[in-house]
Write a protein that binds this DNA or RNA. Structure first.
Lengths: 341, 341
DNA sequence: AAATTTCTGATTTACGTACATCAGAAATCG
DNA sequence: CGATTTCTGATGTACGTAAATCAGAAATTT
């Protein structure tokens, strides 16, 4: 049988009440007694039964997800996954709330975060916009002993406890290698479509992409980045323009959202171009385009995994517990026509 | 507040004891009363607090992992992950035991499975060898109301509750597409190294690979499959032979284990061949070969995920609960040099 | 209608932990 | 040394559920 608090009390020669005081870091225990109890805990290998403890405490985890408003498919999916998690709240003792903030708007994000500081909250997950004032606001939350995880996009140099998202530099490099290898030595131009260089994930993807392109595939020339603001119509216009202007384009890398517009432009360009295309985020649109051959590969981060991971990490952090690192690593999925889920 | 058993009793106008009898499917409740209680449960939206129930029951989950003996890296890794899970037993209320059986040996596997039938066990996970007698043994376990999940390799037509592994046909197709695209239109021979055609995962990978090769890359010719029995030395011999015999080989697909030997053979062949190589399973050997360029892509299934998923599914099945399907889907990881974990 | 058999209610104990209260012991202070 | 102050022990209740017991009510059989 697993040792219990009774066993600690017996082993340490103290009462249950004292064991309880030590375990829950309550005052009223002399240093020597405390050490005696702690030794006993180690000796008999006591592990707190978290389920029983939570039951006794009537513990619930009020969690807040701060998500950008916006109508691209990826954020829609993320919202949906958080709502999905809400339906499991009863089982998981969570109480999840979504706070929406305008996208790419640091002051709004800061205001939302600061508003949370005085609430009684077990953790915050946010899609970070990478700005110093956001970092400061996150650090204030951490100072207030509120667990914080960044979601999808990380926050440079902040004290956040965890990042639930992919390694975007690696994602960019991977996209470059796929594109380069798929083009098999052909020479020509590559155009890159991004959402905004204001978010860290997009910047990092570009950085990784450009670096690997330069070192491994010098025969491919990178055109200036197109910024589509994750908007299908803007993206469509930019890409259509580029394709009609430059007949040497043989590859496209879309590292942001708004791929609906990109796909429209690609289909319109049609047979005129023999294009190899790598994009990010699996949505109904990119899935269809992958299947019909308009797109050659989709890099994806699984929003469901990110949300579930964020919740697990926040709960564990709130309890001062560890997590299974390998389980919480968010992997970059590479989808070809053949391994779609 | 979440409704409790007391609320059910009040709502149904019966006593706690009766509610308990209904909830735990104990005899001694008239049909009409039972239906009244069940209606009340639905009406007030009662959800059983599994943690409290397990606490009261003193529930533990004795699980058995039936794993093939053998010294290839992948099975080593799988063993290690199961042992890792054992260290979390206290927290997860599991009691995990590993039963080793000889690899590719249906009778031994059957004997091991049948021995488990009379034990008091909450679930069995096994790496299946695909044979009718094994299927029958699994079905006997299922008949004995013991939850069963297949791990890594599935079992045709059996009643197992779940399969914790990748879609191997899709894996084979994906390998074919990668190899075909990386070869960029070149013409030549492809050699395939398998472990044994007796296990379903290898057969399926080959099937997917061959089908896609035939339909999409007719300029590539598939050589007869080499069976390396997942043994490094045998693999080395077979591949070295093939490479020296056939100078038209431009691609290699290794769909089993024992890649240490393959890598030795590839390095020995050296500059003589310009080879594109896709292999399965990320190990220290394949990782190093990927980084030094000997291998171009590694397809991988995350053994840790498989083990953790199997445990979650077994526990949930034992409790008659559902699982989050998306969470339990084991994904095929594609690793290039650039996205290694 | 009486005798059974089958259901149901009331109550208690338990699981492992948290938390509160109060009395009494030990340490510290003046 | 007595008077405080600080610790510690003993005890009880609670969390939500499981499981057992036993008495009594209801249904069924004779």
């Amino acid at each position: 049988m697993r040792p219990t608090v009774f066993d600690i009390a017996a082993a340490a020669g103290v009462s249950l009440a004292t064991v309880d005081r030590v375990l829950n870091q309550r005052p009223g225990v002399r240093l020597v007694t405390r050490e005696k109890v702690e030794a006993a805990i180690r000796d008999i290998g006591y592990i707190r039964d978290v389920a029983a403890a939570n039951l006794a405490k009537g513990r619930v985890y009020p969690l807040v997800f701060v998500l950008p408003a916006g109508d691209n498919s990826f954020m829609h999916g993320l919202h949906a996954e958080v709502r999905q998690a809400m339906t499991r709240s009863a089982l998981e003792r969570t109480e999840i709330r979504i706070v929406e903030v305008p996208a790419f708007d640091p002051p709004a994000l800061v205001a939302a975060l600061d508003a949370l500081r005085d609430e009684d909250i077990a953790g915050v997950a946010l899609v970070a916009t990478d700005a110093p004032e956001v970092r400061a606001a996150v650090d204030r939350l951490v100072d207030a002993r509120i667990p914080v995880v960044t979601l999808v996009s990380d926050l440079t140099g902040s004290a956040r406890h965890h990042y639930a998202g992919v390694d975007n530099i690696a994602a960019g490099r991977t996209a470059a290698r796929l594109l380069g290898r798929f083009l098999g030595g052909r020479k020509g131009d590559i155009t890159v479509l991004a959402g905004s260089m204001l978010v860290r994930d997009h910047r990092e993807r570009l950085q990784g992409f450009a670096a690997l392109m330069a070192s491994e595939f010098p025969q491919l020339r990178l055109l200036p980045v197109l910024e589509g603001r994750d908007d299908p119509d803007i993206a469509n216009g930019l890409v259509s323009d580029a394709l009609s202007r430059d007949k040497d384009i043989i590859g496209v890398y879309s590292l942001g959202a708004g791929n609906r517009g990109l796909i429209r432009a690609l289909k319109a360009a049609g047979q005129g171009h023999d294009l190899t295309v790598v994009v990010h985020e699996l949505t109904e649109h990119t899935r269809a385009a992958l299947l019909d051959g308009t797109i050659d590969a989709v890099l994806n981060q699984d929003a469901g995994h990110e949300v579930r991971s964020a919740i697990r990490v926040l709960k564990a952090t709130a309890d001062g517990q560890g997590v299974i690192a390998a389980q919480e690593r968010i992997r970059l999925d590479i989808f070809l026509q053949d391994n779609l889920p």
